[in-house]
Design a protein around this nucleic acid. Structure first.
Lengths: 253, 253
DNA sequence: AAATAGCGTTTGTCGGACAAAGCGGCTTTT
DNA sequence: AAAAGCCGCTTTGTCCGACAAACGCTATTT
């Protein structure tokens, strides 16, 4: 048992990043505000431009700051920031299995649909109906079907009006739903069952029927799993890195 | 409707970061491997050291690379990387409410305890018992109680053997559980109820009793919520930024 | 008024430089 | 011989100065 922790001497670029971050987190800088030019920051902090630039990279990567068309620096609403993508990438590097994705999706998507039953408003229902319409028109097009399924679940999460849930499910969703495309390709009858399940889920939300919504969401996900297995895949295998690279590249920014 | 997207010219430092990231994601560089010195990277990429350094900042922030004691660059298992912290920070900036945290925690913690019932092994149970022992010894010490509660839930998630779930719950947990300290301070009798709930949860896991585990986890969380309200807080208010700053600073790895 | 041409500003990149911190090997001490 | 102290090499963090390309704004041309 050591008595003391290692002393961490903060370097200048970290202090630059922290100083700007503090302004943002405290609310003195609000999303949309612009941070000065690099030269201005150099003047204010009294450090070299290289140092300022390293600090800016940190903030940019952290999703707190964005460069609009390679020009001015803006504080940004940090939802967009590819944070979820990075978590997904981390998961792949840890060799998570499809079963882990599936189990987690079961928890989060059921929670999500429960929230939707309680909170969905007319606008959200319209968006879901619109999605459903496009889905029913897209039979036999695996790419579009997969995208619409992914969008459907994203809409459900949005409908909860719960940003925490929405962001919590995103990393798993990013890896989970893209494989729908592969399933649709190998198990053609899957698309119909998916459309049917989505239909029932939307109806259950409209009827504010919690149990029904839960039931159909579970059925929907179990269907995914069956399709996954029938497509010849092994549920306990890690998400392949090649696949992840493909899935995540589409969702960048 | 525009026909073409804006063309994004990748800058040199981005290409440096992408090149190294590709090596890591593809598995040619494995966690623990060391990347060369900055000078070596300068030679390989044929760019300036400032450029290499900006690229490294990007990877460091992304949790793919770490600098050990300000010396060599290592590829790291990206779990540690403060990604969760950054998501939490993003949530605070979006003014999420305690209700959102609570609802999400309800979904994730119940899912977590379900997983634990199925998967917990002897070692994990021992860790939980150890936590429980320390908790029962810590009555009247809000700081320690809060830490142990947080640890308890982290252990449960770990016990699932589901890394996806573990990482999904972390951002919410980071903001949710620290307020336990505040509750314990204002509602002294809460500690006893917490210990009792933890006790029942551990027993339910040992007995592999799914329903019982769920029930006690729900009760435990509802207790938290009651305590939160009795401590005079408003559940529909956003997480205060000051509080978040405090809560997140402690978890900075 | 719309298109064009300048002009100053800002970013991305470069080369070189230096102090401080860490590492390794060598020498001295015990 | 092991421990402690010393010294030089490497590497990082920071700084300086510089330049081309991209951009925004303004004045000019059509």
């Amino acid at each position: 048992m050591e008595r003391f922790d290692r002393i961490k001497v903060p370097s200048a670029y970290e202090m630059v990043a922290d100083a700007i971050e503090a302004e943002i987190v405290s609310g003195r800088l609000r999303p949309g505000d612009e941070i000065g030019t690099e030269a201005a920051l150099v003047r204010q902090f009294g450090v070299n431009r290289s140092t300022v630039r390293e600090g800016i990279r940190v903030l940019e990567q952290g999703g707190l700051v964005r460069r609009e068309a390679s020009r001015k620096l803006f504080v940004c609403e940090p939802r967009a920031g590819g944070l979820s993508t990075r978590i997904s990438r981390a998961l792949v590097l840890q060799d998570v299995t499809f079963r882990e994705l599936f189990d987690t999706a079961m928890v989060l998507e059921v929670g999500s649909v429960e929230g939707a039953v309680v909170h969905a408003d007319a606008e959200m229902l319209a968006a879901l109906e619109d999605n459903q319409e496009r889905l029913e028109a897209a039979v036999n097009n695996p790419v579009v079907i997969a995208e619409l399924d992914s969008e459907f679940h994203a809409l459900l999460a949005r409908a909860c009006g719960n940003l925490v849930l929405e962001m919590a499910r995103e990393p798993a969703a990013l890896l989970f739903f893209p494989s729908t495309e592969m399933i649709c390709r190998r198990v053609p009858e899957g698309a119909g069952r998916m459309a049917q399940a989505h239909r029932h889920i939307i109806d259950a939300i409209k009827a504010r029927d919690l149990d029904l919504a839960r039931t159909w969401m579970r059925r929907h996900l179990v269907d995914w799993r069956k399709g996954f297995v029938r497509a010849g895949r092994e549920i306990d295998q890690p998400v392949e890195r090649i696949f992840a690279r493909y899935a995540l590249s589409k969702s960048q920014s």
